[in-house]
Design a protein around this nucleic acid. Structure first.
Length: 704
DNA sequence: AGGAACTAGA
């Protein structure tokens, strides 16, 4: 950089640099002539010759020192001498500070050689120590020396301000995954904004968000503001670990706003990606516009994250628009961007559009990768086009893209969702023919597939088989296995498996407890339900929305409405937002008992909380009126659905038919069945059975 | 950028 243009008053340079570049050497000698050494003692031998002992530094580190110094030089170039740190570094590399060295022990007990060494550096100004430390910290192998340097400087009181030294070192320790040492170091003195920030950054880099957030709160209590970089690091960590949710991010953003913390381009990009990943596309969009409003252009990765999330929410037109934006920004979309777009079409089942994306890729010379093919296979699988999926597999082979376990687990899952569990064996064969070894997730899908269709023996066999192949079952495996036994009423076996799980050393997670709470609830074993909740707490697991929903469901279904409502309240006070699923459970419970007033009331509360009515809730409402013999109101719900653009389904019409049968208006049933067909619903067994029973009643009524 | 499990109606 400036080294050549603006020669520093070189006195003592690290030798190797002067030899690597003739220009540098030239300057070195040039300045050397009229800049006498500032100090020279026996301990710190000041050597003007290039034969100075090589310090334990790489040439790259030396360069970084020079660059740092160059910046400092601008102001007081003429006054700044250069120092030879090599004797000190040599000393420090053999020096292991004990804890007592830091403050208490007095220098008089020290070795006179060390004292002389310290004295020789007495005149070094702080910025030089800072840059030396920065350069030592930049390589993991010399961090120990950096640590020793800080300890040593403090011991001899050579540098008046330690907070910067500390923060540099804490930062470096954080980067090298040595969080514990960073904490130890930070405890040597009260935290200042600099050390706070360094420590928060170190925690975030090491994904210890709890500590990072706690420190941020503490910092705020101490009256300091957190650095904006830390917000970036925290959001990045949340995104990395897939543990980001909109509420947390909103809270963080609230703090940023309240403290008027600077929003730089990076932070804005991070927030946008964060909201995308959290599934809050609207907010992601908002921040995208903030980025553009500030005259910045969003990073490609940010746009791709937004496109992917738009696709996930089925908003393919907008995904397409952002994709175009990427193109208009002069960026050539690459495989990742195309894949994000493709994902949306696969999600919404727009097979033609999905195929178009892939052709477009081919036209633009963008190579499809394993993800592209997997998505395409997913699309064909969802459309039931197994043959086309096979062709894609072949195409992968031709293009030298190895299919993997992931692809096959997607194929298997699409069969599962269409009820074709028998295909599992075929998929497994096909996979092995392609030389792909099934992994744990594949087996988990396979167990789930068998389990969902009540093939519990096959599920258990698969479980044994994966163990024989050396794949340890994980929490998901156990949860899948336990739950499928519950679903088919084998609660004893489920409980037995729950015991085995714990014996095998696999820790139960919140989902495991949710499954077991549901199982005990279905059996009305209320004491055991309470025990599970206690056990959960003692293991440090917090009930989540699913836990509370399960509780509302089991209490509600058994008519214990007081308990159900209480759970809802407890959940709210725990700071969790009730979901629409939760209200569905409650409305459904009232509906089954024909408590239509209460069902309507729960529906109103749900609407009042800004939750949009789902098909499930409305069907339950119809059921409530049906059970309460209020057929007119039941049909008014259908009217509501039509007016509000909510698509009715088979269940809607089946329940309406049931409502008519309840009030013995059998003759009106066939018309409802007709309307169902007209609206494009395919009748299933239950729908047909409902029509048949109406016809039977009509016949027997005629006979009378 | 990606895959698995738990809550839900007739």
């Amino acid at each position: 950089m400036n080294i050549v243009l603006q020669p520093p008053p070189v006195q003592f340079r690290f030798p190797s640099i002067h030899f690597t570049s003739p220009i540098l050497r030239h300057h070195h000698h040039h300045h050397h002539v009229y800049k006498p050494p500032l100090f020279a003692t026996a301990a710190a031998t000041v050597s003007t010759s290039a034969t100075t002992t090589t310090p334990p530094l790489s040439s790259q580190q030396q360069l970084s020192i020079e660059n740092e110094e160059e910046e400092e030089d601008d102001a007081h170039e003429a006054r700044n001498p250069r120092y030879d740190f090599s004797p000190l570094l040599e000393f420090l590399s053999a020096y292991s500070p004990s804890s007592s060295d830091t403050e208490s022990s007095s220098p008089t007990q020290l070795d006179p050689t060390e004292l002389r060494l310290a004295e020789s550096y007495r005149a070094v100004p702080a910025p030089f120590w800072h840059s030396l430390l920065k350069s030592l910290s930049s390589t993991p192998s010399s961090i120990s020396t950096a640590y020793a340097l800080v300890t040593w400087l403090q011991k001899h009181n050579l540098c008046f301000s330690y907070e910067l030294l500390y923060s540099i070192l804490i930062h470096a320790l954080g980067r090298s995954e040595r969080l514990y040492e960073a904490f130890l170091l930070s405890q040597r003195q009260t935290l200042t904004p600099l050390t706070y920030n360094a420590l928060i950054g170190a925690c975030a880099r090491n994904d210890d968000l709890e500590k990072a957030l706690n420190l941020m709160a503490r910092m705020r209590r101490d009256g300091y503001q957190s650095d904006f970089v830390n917000y970036s690091l925290i959001i990045q960590s949340l995104v990395r670990n897939n543990s980001i949710d909109s509420t947390l991010l909103e809270k963080l953003y609230g703090e940023i706003e309240a403290d008027r913390i600077e929003l730089d381009g990076q932070l804005l990009n991070d927030i946008t990606v964060g909201f995308s990943k959290a599934g809050d596309v609207n907010r992601a969009f908002y921040f995208l516009s903030v980025i553009q409003g500030n005259g910045l252009s969003p990073k490609t990765a940010t746009l791709v994250a937004v496109i992917a999330q738009l696709g996930n929410s089925g908003r393919t037109e907008e995904a397409e628009a952002v994709f175009e934006e990427l193109r208009e920004g002069g960026l050539k979309p690459r495989t990742r961007a195309y894949n994000a777009l493709l994902k949306g079409y696969v999600k919404t089942g727009a097979l033609r559009d999905a195929e178009d994306v892939v052709s477009e890729m081919e036209r633009s010379g963008v190579a499809p990768d394993e993800h592209t093919y997997s998505l395409l296979i997913d699309a064909y699988g969802n459309a039931g086009r197994w043959e086309s999926a096979r062709i894609v597999l072949k195409e992968m082979e031709v293009n030298n893209v190895q299919p993997n376990s992931y692809v096959f687990s997607r194929i298997l899952a699409s069969y599962r969702d269409r009820g074709e569990w028998q295909r599992s064996f075929q998929v497994l064969r096909e996979m092995k023919n392609n030389g792909v070894t099934p992994d744990r997730q594949f087996y988990n899908v396979m167990i789930d597939t068998f389990g969902k269709y009540n093939c519990l023996d096959h599920a258990m066999d698969t479980f044994e088989r994966m163990k024989l192949e050396g794949i340890e079952p994980d929490t998901v495996t156990w949860n899948t296995l336990i739950d499928c036994h519950c679903k088919h009423g084998h609660h004893d076996k489920a409980e037995e498996l729950f015991e085995s799980m714990q014996k095998s050393g696999c820790l139960a997670c919140t989902t495991t407890f949710n499954i077991m709470i549901n199982s005990f609830g279905k059996q009305e074993r209320w004491e055991d339900v309470k025990d599970l909740l206690g056990k959960m707490q003692s293991q440090g697991l917090l009930p989540n929305v699913v836990t509370y929903t399960t509780l509302v469901d089991i209490y509600g279904q058994s008519g214990r409405f007081k308990d159900a409502i209480e759970c809802l309240e407890v959940m709210k006070s725990a700071g969790l937002k009730p979901s629409s699923t939760m209200y569905n459970a409650l409305i459904n419970a009232y509906a089954q008992r024909g408590l239509s007033e209460q069902a309507v009331n729960a529906f109103r509360v749900m609407r009042g909380e800004g939750l949009k009515p789902s098909l499930l809730a409305l069907n339950s409402l119809i059921n409530a009126f049906s059970e309460d013999r209020r057929d007119t109101e039941a049909f008014s719900v259908l009217q509501y659905m039509k007016e509000n653009d909510l698509k009715s389904d088979v269940v809607t019409y089946t329940t309406l038919m049931k409502a008519l049968i309840r009030v013995e208006k059998f003759e009106k049933v066939p018309a409802v069945y007709e309307e169902m067909l007209m609206s494009g619903c395919t009748p299933d067994r239950k729908a047909r059975a409902m029509l048949r029973s109406a016809l039977r009643y009509m016949k027997s009524a005629l006979k009378l």
